[in-house]
Structure formats: C-alpha cells, structure tokens
C-alpha cells in the first residue's frame, strides 16, 4: 500500500542489516570467546574458525566463588521479587479503584523516585547498613532492590489491571465480597499473566543490578554481576572465563526478557507514553 521510492526502500534495508550486524556481531564475538582456547582468543589475526572448547565453562562452574554468586543472585532476585509483589500487587489493585488526586500523585511520585540516580540513595544506605549490620547480607540487598522493583511492578500492572472491567468488582461487591476477597477470588486469577510478566521483568532487573550489589556486599552475598567484575580484577587475563560467565548471566535475562517484551514500556516509563 505504501508508495515508497526504491532508493529509500534500499536505504531502509541497508540500515536494518547494518543495525542487525551491529547488535549481533558483538554478542556473537563474546559467545565465541567463551568457547575459544586461550591461545585462540589472543590470536592475531583473530580466528574465525577454531576448535571449540568448553573448558572456560568448566572452570567457571568449578569455581566455588562463582557457584556461591549464582546462589546469592538467585536468593536476592527471588527474594526481591517476592517481597516487591507482596507490596506492589495490592498497591496496583488499590490504584485500580482509587480516584482523584491520591491516585495521580502516587503514580507520579513513584515514577519520579525511580528516575533518581541510584548513587543518590547509595551513600545513606552505606552509612546506615554499616551501623545496622545489614552490610553484606541478603536481606540488606533485597531491601534496596525494592526501590526499583516496587515502582516497576506497580507501573506495569496498572494499565493491565485497567483492562479488567469495573463491572466485575462491582458484581463481586454486590455478591458480598470484601475488597480483599475480590482481590483474591476475582482479580488475582485474572491478573495471573500480568503478574507473572511483571515478576519476570522485576527478576531481570534484580538479576542485572550492579551498583548496589557492588557497594553493599563484601564477601558473603556477592552477586553474579559483582562476581564477574572480581574475575576481571583478580584474573585479568582469563577472558575465556569472563566471557563464559557473561554468557551465563545474559542468557536467562534475554530468554525471559523475550517472554515479557510487550509489557516493557509501561514498566519502564510509567505510561508517560500511551502504549
């Protein structure tokens, strides 16, 4: 239907292909590095064809520090998501029904808070955690993750919740359900998909988080992004190992990310753009 000069069509195709390469080649390079031997990794000119070796993966998974980091990342991310859901899901439910300035100000407030650079919050947490013995604890990290995950989940769920007809909650009210019963018996079963998507996205953000983990962990609760930086610091030339660890961190984030990509906008921008 669209009439487009041939020249421009060619231009668009070219751009698309160049961009595709720009995205994929670096990723592929990292992937290939993770299965190259050390010798091949530093070969000059770079070797496009080589004998793959999974030695780096073996080393990574043989490293107790890395295994602990996997455990820590799982604990912190899962804990952060669970706690965030507990706080954010009822809030999103409330915002489905609350009218007037309270709703508006709450949504705006949590959006602004999310936009503030993390470094602003970090200094007081550093001081406070040192005093309160929360430094280098799982719960300490989980708590700071609430700062970004609670707003994220509220923002993601609000538009999805709006799609559930108001009549349903009114019918439930007539049928004798309290707001809490309505939430549990009517809304939650209908929001399953949305809540799952929000959980996944929140999990990815927790899984990827670096700054808070860098400062608020020491030895015990080092998460994967920090563990990988430690590889860099202590084993500066072990690029195969670093690449393998990177692939391990990235893969679940990408796989799960694809599942929830259509929900991303409202979560990231709080619906400042109509989606």
């Amino acid at each position: 239907m669209r009439v487009r000069p041939r020249r421009i069509t060619a231009g668009l195709y070219t751009f698309a292909i160049v961009w595709g390469l720009f995205i994929l080649v670096p990723f592929a390079w990292l992937a290939s590095l993770s299965i190259k031997s050390r010798l091949d990794a530093f070969a000059d000119p770079p070797k496009l064809f080589f004998t793959p070796t999974f030695a780096a993966y073996g080393e990574v998974f043989g490293d107790p520090a890395f295994l602990r980091a996997i455990g820590n990342s799982l604990i912190v991310s899962t804990g952060a998501v669970a706690l965030s859901l507990l706080i954010a899901v009822p809030a999103a439910y409330a915002l489905r029904h609350i009218v007037g300035p309270l709703r508006h100000h709450t949504l705006l407030g949590i959006l602004l808070i999310r936009m503030v650079p993390g470094m602003v919050y970090l200094l007081p947490y550093f001081v406070f955690y040192n005093k309160a013995h929360l430094m280098d604890t799982h719960i300490g990290l989980i708590i700071v993750h609430l700062i970004f995950n609670v707003p994220l989940i509220i923002w993601m769920l609000t538009p999805i919740w709006a799609a559930i007809p108001h009549d349903l909650s009114e019918a439930a009210r007539i049928d004798g359900a309290t707001p809490f019963q309505t939430l549990v018996m009517v809304d939650l079963p209908l929001m399953k998909g949305g809540i799952l998507a929000a959980s996944i996205l929140a999990f990815i953000f927790s899984w990827n988080e670096f700054l808070f983990a860098l400062i608020l962990s020491r030895r015990e609760v080092v998460t994967l992004p920090v563990a990988i930086v430690n590889f860099l610091a202590f084993e500066g030339t072990e690029w195969g190992k670093i690449a393998a660890a990177s692939m391990f961190i990235v893969t679940p984030a990408i796989v799960f990310g694809f599942l929830v990509r259509r929900y991303m906008i409202s979560g990231l921008t709080g619906g400042a753009v109509k989606g």
Binding site: D167, L168, A171, R173, I174, D175, L190
Partner: peptide, 20 residues
C-alpha cells in the same frame, strides 16, 4: 449500608460474569 447487607441482587448490562 454496604451492598451485601442490603439484601439485593443485581444484573449488569455487561453481565459481569467472572471469566475464570
């Protein structure tokens, strides 16, 4: 008085059936 205490029942234009 809360709706449930009014001894009423209501049918909505959209029927408001619980889909699940």
């Amino acid at each position: 008085v809360e709706p449930k205490e009014r001894d009423i029942a209501m049918v909505f234009q959209s029927y408001a059936l619980y889909p699940h």
